[in-house]
Amino acid sequence: MKAEDFLDAVQTYCTHFPLMLPEQWGWWEPLDRSFDAGNLTDLIPEKGACETVYWQRKRSPKMEGTFDVRWQSKSTQVSSTHAKIGFTSELGKIDQTTLLGYLKTASEYSKADFAFVDVLAEQYRDFAIASGSAPYGERFMFFTHLLRHWLPDVFWGTVFGPPYVRLLGKDRLLSAPAYLVEELGAETIYVQLTENLTDVVEDGNAIQSFRTAFKQHFRDDVFFVPEKAYDRSERGPVGDVFATPVFELIAD
C-alpha cells in the first residue's frame, strides 16, 4: 500500500473526528506510541512500507480501531486482499450525522467495495458469529476471505460498492425497502434500514424485520443463511453455494 494513500485515509478520519482522535497506537502490542495528528508520517515505519496501525482511545468516547493494510495471499504472488478501516465506539457517544458523513465520504474517496455501521446487539450475536461478521462474538470484523464466500448480511447502514451494485443490480438496490436508499456515486449506493442507529438495541425485532424485508427483495443466493453454511477453509475462493462478486482490486 502506498504511503500517501495510507496517510490520506488516516487524515480523512482525523478531519471528520477531530474530537475523537486516537491516543495511543502501535504496529503491534503494546500500543505505547502517542498519536500526533500533526505528524501522521510517524505511522509509516522507517523502511517506508506501510504496516497495519492499531489504536485506542481511553478517554470518552472510548474507542479502538485499526487502519489495516493489504496482506499477501498465501495462494498467490500478489496482494489480493482489501485494505480495511475499522473502529468501535461506545453507542451514543458519536453524533450519528458525523458518523454517517465519515462513512459516506471515506467510502467514496477510497472507492470502497463494502462498508457498514451497526451495533452488535445481544440477540444478533449468534447469527453474527455463524455468518462470520463477528467471528468471536465481541465486535464486527470480517475480511476479503469471508466476502469471497458470502455476504454476511445487510447492516443498519451499508455502503454497497461497485462489485455489489453489479451483483445485486443498481435499479433493484435503488428500489429496495429501507428508510433511506441513497446513490453516492455511479456504482455506490448507501442503504439505511431505520432512522436511528439506537433502533438496533431499542427494537431488535423491528430491525430484524427490516433486514429480512430488504434481503427478500433480492435473489436468495447472495446473503448468508445458516442452512447453506460450510467450512470456508475447505472450499475455494468462489463457491457454488452463494453468488459472490468479482473484486477488481487495485494493485499497489
Rank of each mutant, 00 (worst) to 15 (best):
Q56C: 11
E90Y: 02
S34Q: 11
D32N: 15
D68N: 13
F116I: 10
E108V: 12
G92M: 10
T76Y: 00
E51K: 12
F143T: 15
R148A: 01
M141Q: 09
C50E: 00
F87M: 03
E46S: 15
R57H: 08
F114Y: 14
A37V: 09
R70Q: 12
R148M: 09
L151E: 08
E122C: 01
H82Q: 01
S107F: 01
E46H: 10
Y109S: 12
Y102W: 15
G137W: 05
A112P: 01
E46A: 14
P45I: 07
N39M: 03
D118K: 03
F35K: 02
D42Y: 03
I94H: 09
T41I: 11
D42A: 15
A37P: 05
K104C: 11
V53N: 06
F155I: 06
G38M: 08
L99I: 08
H145K: 12
Y136G: 05
E51G: 11
F127C: 08
K111Q: 14
K58L: 10
I85K: 06
Q56P: 04
G132K: 02
V119S: 03
H145F: 06
Q56T: 14
H82V: 01
D32E: 14
H145V: 15
S133K: 06
Q77P: 00
T76P: 07
G132H: 05
S75R: 14
K47E: 15
R139F: 07
R57D: 09
A128N: 12
L147F: 10
T144G: 01
D36H: 11
Y136W: 06
F143M: 08
V78F: 09
V69M: 03
L100V: 02
L99A: 15
T66G: 07
I129G: 02
R33G: 01
T41P: 01
A128P: 02
L99V: 15
A115G: 02
Q96P: 02
A130I: 07
A115S: 15
G38P: 05
R59H: 11
L40R: 11
Q96W: 00
T88C: 08
K58P: 00
W55Q: 10
G132Q: 05
M141E: 12
R148E: 10
L103V: 11
M141G: 13
F114G: 06
A37Q: 12
T98H: 06
S110A: 14
L120F: 04
I44G: 13
C50V: 06
W55K: 12
A83D: 14
Y109C: 02
S133G: 00
V154M: 04
G38I: 05
L91E: 07
F87S: 04
P152S: 09
R139Q: 08
R139P: 00
T97N: 05
E51L: 13
K74I: 09
T144Q: 08
Y136H: 13
D118Y: 10
G48M: 12
A112C: 14
Q77Y: 10
K74W: 04
K93P: 00
S107E: 07
V78H: 13
A128M: 11
R33E: 10
A106W: 01
V69S: 02
A121C: 04
G65S: 10
S89Y: 15
Q77I: 07
L146R: 04
T76I: 03
Y109H: 11
